[in-house]
Design a protein around this nucleic acid. Sequence first.
DNA 1: CAAATTTGACCTCG
DNA 2: CGAGGTCAAATTTG
Length: 248
Amino acid sequence: MDTLSPWLETPRSNKERVVQQLMHGRQSATQLQILFHNHKHPSEESGASSAEELVRNILTSFDHALSALSCIDQDQTTCNDDSPWCENRKRLGSKAKRGCYKRKRGAQIWTIVSATMEDGHAWRKYGQKKILNSKHPRSYFRCTRKYGQGCRAMKQVQRMEDDPQMYETTYIGTHTCMDSFRAPQIIPDSECWESHMGPQIPSKPSLKREPREGTRTGNDVMDLDPMVWKEILGAHGLDCSSQPGMGV
DNA sequence: CAAATTTGACCTCG
DNA sequence: CGAGGTCAAATTTG
């Protein structure tokens, strides 16, 4: 029984179909990036770098397209409320309550099953929970550059019960940051997200150069076939208007 | 010493 | 009220 993967549904609209295709392409690009990462030889540094850059560009394009799509989605459903999963939970001010978090809405969610959790991005773990049905806990990650560039990408990783060597990684949201400092923040779509994201992140202008994501990688080598990247693409979205209690 | 992880409390949703 | 998700203090690690 898969209690998880509630998102696999056949796409109902053209838009969702497009999103699916984009996600598919994005995943392929991610795999390609990992492959490049693995097979990088010191000798082909110059050649590999350009190829890697190409892959990165592809990934960026996919990310932007996905972000733009989700932006459109929200735009036409009035994305006005206190932006979803934003950090403005301080509005409860009185007691600095810890959770005003609304569930992620309007964010792209997709799941990948892989033998590794490396995906070319640097993640920071911010939580771990035991899940009732599963024997293994679920780990929660968010992009390291969340505070540096406001990247809202998150992911949660959980070991599969079938194959304890496999990780089921659920990605939530797309990266608006760049793996390296290459890309400026051209992300035109992002202004939809932070339509009213005030000037936060005032401190900490000093981001380290390289987060050095090589934390724990002694587990599984990334030798996986592209086949194992089972994809459970998530059709999802547009709930902005159907929010309870936020009428007009 | 700073950044990342751990871990328990806290919060929301169903 | 339970389960899942997030925060943040404490701790570990480079």
